[in-house]
């Protein structure tokens, strides 16, 4: 089985976020870029399938700027992906999701695949647009928020669960499919030290932007006329409730929640 995993570098949860002077992007200084948690689950799922289906191979693909994109591809190789493709996005070009979907469609033409895996959304912008947009462009079925994907060789079907808002569905489907993985359900592995060292020497296949751009055709990229980031006003810290007894604390809090915060009648 040929499996493709789409991955994306995102700022580590502990990175400090600071918009630049114009608020148009987040200041790169001090941001640590890592594989998104959703993508880690997707890579783990690919590796589990690879182990279960003899003769399988896993290719990770990412569209993004240097150097962080190459780094997350190496991290994916360290986890166990066999090959990696970096579609280079010029530094400074906005990360429009529809552009990204079109670019990935072009990249996927080069690699035959039975299954495309992705995180159901990215850990930074949390859009979740790219997987379903790409599925639409490819004309394949897609399912997001998936856990526990298995291959049933005798029926040539995938079986998996979709975790929806108020329950879950069991799905059986034939490939090719695009599957968006739920985060952290499969306890993604940690790359071992020898594999990290080996991944430094792995070949990363590169698709330069100049090769990809002419393939995209007429397309009005840049859905947004502007983009700004703002940080929430710093929380000033909790207003602590003074009380003599637990009952008094409860009474005061409920009164505040009803009359001041108005969160319930």
């Amino acid at each position: 089985m040929e499996i493709v995993v789409l991955v994306k570098p995102v700022p580590d949860a502990e990175s400090r976020l600071r918009p630049n002077a114009g608020g148009t992007e987040l200041d790169g200084e001090g941001i640590k870029w890592v594989l998104s948690g959703y993508d880690e689950s997707a890579v783990e799922q690919a590796l589990l399938l690879k182990a279960a289906v003899p003769g399988s191979s896993v290719r990770c693909i990412s569209f993004g700027p240097a150097p962080r994109t190459e780094e997350v591809l190496r991290a994916s190789v360290a986890l166990g992906c066999d090959r990696a493709t970096w579609v280079e996005r010029p530094v400074g070009m906005p990360a429009d999701p529809l552009l990204c979907a079109r670019v990935l469609r072009e990249a996927l033409r080069k690699y035959p695949h039975d299954l495309i895996l992705a995180g159901k959304q990215a850990g930074d912008d949390e859009e979740g647009i790219v997987p379903s947009a790409l599925a639409e462009l490819l004309g394949v079925e897609s399912f997001g928020s998936v856990v526990d994907l298995r291959w049933h060789a005798e029926e040539k079907r995938f079986r998996f669960q979709c975790v929806l808002d108020s329950g879950s569905e069991k799905v059986e489907a034939a490939g090719p499919l695009l599957i968006g993985l739920q985060q952290a359900w499969n306890d993604p592995r940690t790359a071992t030290l020898p594999n990290i060292l080996r991944s430094r020497k792995a070949t990363i296949d590169r698709l330069p932007w100049s090769d990809v751009a002419p393939l995209l055709g007429a397309f009005s990229a840049g859905r947004t006329t502007s983009q700004r980031f703002r940080l929430p006003p710093p929380r000033t810290g909790a207003r602590l409730i003074d009380y003599q007894s637990p009952e008094e604390a409860a009474e005061k809090l409920v009164k505040i929640l009803r009359e001041e915060a108005k969160v319930f009648p």
Partner: peptide, 9 residues
């Protein structure tokens, strides 16, 4: 980058 990877692990 290799040393950073090792340290991050």
């Amino acid at each position: 980058a290799e040393q950073e990877g090792v340290r991050d692990l």
